[in-house]
Design a protein around this nucleic acid. Structure first.
Length: 305
DNA sequence: CGTCGGGTGCGTCAGACGGT
DNA sequence: ACCGTCTGACGCACCCGACG
């Protein structure tokens, strides 16, 4: 699980130990005695761990009477942000990767767009994705909430044999297909029909490799079923329109929350991995401390027969 | 082969939290 | 105060190995 390779353990020079973590990551661990920190227990790195384990230390805190009930309640009710905790960990431990801060849409869009061939139009979908249509007709989708690898998806335009009147089929390889997606393009609409969802009502994300079909339609008189045009509140009149607007808002909220939940789970997994790595590192440190303590004991109190 | 239990991922809801 | 985001909790579906 964790392999340790000693390197430069000579006295007087900083002892460096290479620790092979389960994830394959190699971490350099310095000899603790040479480091300025007086005690491992008082290491500032522990503070961030305490944030996540406060609930478990509730009993001891109560027995000590150090924290009054109000304060404790306030602390207990505060949920940890995996990003914050991990970033605090990262600032303490250089080897720990940071979770990238979410950038504002204005900030994170340009790098993706910059790699494109001067798009003539950039649109945002109802799922938060950005769609850029270049002058050559190429369509690229950038997913602001995803990794860089997934962030840019290339669409391929295909002229099938007999497309529906006024429709162009656009295909792209999606990393995950989560239900029907809709996005709106002024002058034309794009309807994503997730065949996986339609044919098999399974919600599992095993649709990797499936090819949802985009249909770009001209703003015809009748909208395709399932497509809801974004309407400004001022243009709503009838109760039916209000209900549709409420439904649309709810769908949008659910969609965003769905994505947020995915992202949260991803961060949580990353956070747990980080903690496991720290456990591995601290175990190695602890082992080395014990060994050094034994060595010092031998030096200070040689055996006398 | 059918069943059971554990593990995992997903969607949704509710509530806390932070920004405006 | 309002709104968007984040995250714990819950229920559900699916997968997989163990077991009879």
């Amino acid at each position: 699980m964790v392999s340790v390779a000693g390197a430069g353990t000579g006295r007087g020079s900083p002892a460096v130990t290479l620790v092979q973590l389960p994830s394959g990551q190699t971490v350099r661990v310095q000899g603790v005695i040479q480091t300025p920190q007086p005690s491992v227990i008082q290491s500032p790195q522990i503070q961030t761990v305490q944030v996540a384990t406060i609930a478990e230390t509730d009993e001891s805190a109560e027995s000590e009477g150090v924290i009054d009930s109000h304060k404790r309640r306030e602390i207990l009710s505060r949920r940890p942000s995996y990003r914050k905790i991990l970033n605090e960990l990262s600032s303490d431990v250089p080897g720990v990767p940071k979770i990238e801060e979410e950038k504002s849409e204005e900030e994170r869009t340009p790098p993706n767009i910059a790699t494109m061939a001067v798009p003539t139009s950039i649109y945002q979908t109802s799922t938060g994705q950005y769609i850029a249509i270049a002058q050559g007709g190429a369509i690229q989708i950038s997913n602001p909430g995803s990794d860089g690898v997934q962030g840019l998806q290339a669409l391929t335009m295909t002229d099938s044999g007999a497309p529906p009147p006024g429709a162009t089929i656009v295909q792209y390889a999606a990393q995950s297909a989560d239900g029907t997606q809709q996005f709106f393009v002024p002058g034309s609409q794009v309807l994503v029909q997730d065949e996986e969802t339609e044919l098999a009502p399974s919600h599992m994300a095993a649709a990797t490799g499936d090819m949802p079909t985009y249909q770009i339609r001209a703003p015809a008189t009748a909208l395709p079923q399932g497509v809801v045009m974004a309407a400004s509140p001022g243009s709503l009149h009838s109760p039916q329109q209000l209900a549709e607007e409420a439904t649309r808002k709810r769908e949008l909220r659910l969609m965003k929350n769905r994505e947020a939940a995915k992202e949260c789970r991803r961060r949580k997994k990353e956070y747990v991995k980080c903690l496991e790595s720290r456990v591995a590192v601290l175990e190695v440190q602890n082992k080395k401390l014990i060994e050094e303590l034994e060595t010092l004991k031998d030096i200070c109190s040689p055996k006398t027969d």
